[in-house]
Write a protein that binds this DNA or RNA. Sequence first.
RNA 1: GCGACCGUAGCUCAGCUGGUAGAGCACUCGGUUGUGAUCCGAGUUGUCGCGGGUUCAAGCCCCGUCGGUCGCCCCA
Length: 431
Amino acid sequence: MSSNKVYKPKPVSGFPEYLPEVRLVEQQWLDHIRRVFESYGFCSVETPSVEELDVLSAKGEVDKEIYVLERLHKEEGGKDARLALHFDQTVPLARYVAQHFNDLTFPFKRYQMQRVWRGERPQAGRFREFTQCDIDVINVDSLPLHFDAEMPAIIWETLSSLPGMENEKIQLRISNRKILIGLLEGKTNNIPEALRIIDKIEKIGKDEVTKLLSKDCAIDDENIKIIMNLVGHDGYYILQDLTASNEMMAQGMEEIKFVKEQLSNLPEEAVKVDLSIVRGLDYYTGTVYETVFTDDPGYGSICSGGRYDDLAGQYINKALPGVGISIGFSRLFAKLLEQGKLPIARKSPADVLMLLPADDQHDKATEAAQTLRKNGHNVEMYHKAQKLQKQLSYAEKKGIPYVWFPGDGEVKDMATGEQVKADPQSWTPHE
RNA sequence: GCGACCGUAGCUCAGCUGGUAGAGCACUCGGUUGUGAUCCGAGUUGUCGCGGGUUCAAGCCCCGUCGGUCGCCCCA
């Protein structure tokens, strides 16, 4: 402390942290999301920050940059670390369901709001540590398609009512993987690559996609035409007179039509069928979701998910289909913060600052504060009998809306300056 | 992991063709007795990211390195 050599702290890139006034709004958001999720009957689950590496990599290649845990004082010749931070909440859920299979009641509906970690290079809206808010439904053997339709409805309700989101234009884009995969069947021997290219259509444009499909996937011009017709227009419109080229494609078409029709009570622009959407995660098998700011789709998806017919199958010998969606909380929040659209106000949750005009009023102040707290108000005590000038400006700076004078029992409204006699037992703020 | 740009007080930045650092904000105190937001005065704050080189002299030039931002990859 007294040393003149200070270590100058700097933020760790990709690991956001906020000031109290921002955090206050963040908590408001999390509470809001939690309430909506619970209103649909989802129950809360929290899993450890770490999973065994084998669990995380059970599905597909580990192309995600996973943070592996390594102990600082690892003993020489010690075994390699087997634990890693989870990079999403879906894989841990699958493990969770498999592990507690006997004790869960199906359909199992859970929400999970935790941090996840990805070792990617940070950018605007992309972090290395961030919060996701997931809802998923998992059932045994089969899961009604109604759940696929319920997901976007819940998300729409949640996002459009978040404080500060009222005027944001967002759009849920939905698709069904079976359509594109069915269509590509037999047209290329590199379907994954073709999907990756098509998924980028918004970013790189139709011409570039056309070029790449021909060059990298060896798809002939006629088939490219068919594909581009499918993904280059409003999907729901295209579906009306599209002929399926195989069973898988037909199934996908039927499913997406059903989902879209179930969502007809939402505003016109809220949900759009976009057949170019595939999503990178390889465990999705049917419906997929993506959500963007209509005026800034390049910012990336702020809420994605989909159906997976067999995720837990890696951990248990049962058929456990599920569908889920995840709010990219940090990405969404960061965008509104950056644009100054969050309702940032107070720096403290205190409603009242209990002043201390003189030391001999301390007991009285404590008593009044306790009474106020019992009645549901948040009260901070000023513990040093400094000039009132200081105490008031402290309240002002922290954005505490009321100050209390314990001596003669008066309360002052900092916004209006009005000061009146009040009883801590019965006092309530003006609105 | 690859490419482009950037790195000066806690924050945002200025610093002329190289001559050994400044502004605003913030912070502390004050403008007399128990009342804040404005205003005024005073004060504190820097190994100019780090290391090396060129030079009589470098924040400014060169090389390296680390860190940051953006793009690619991938994704919430």
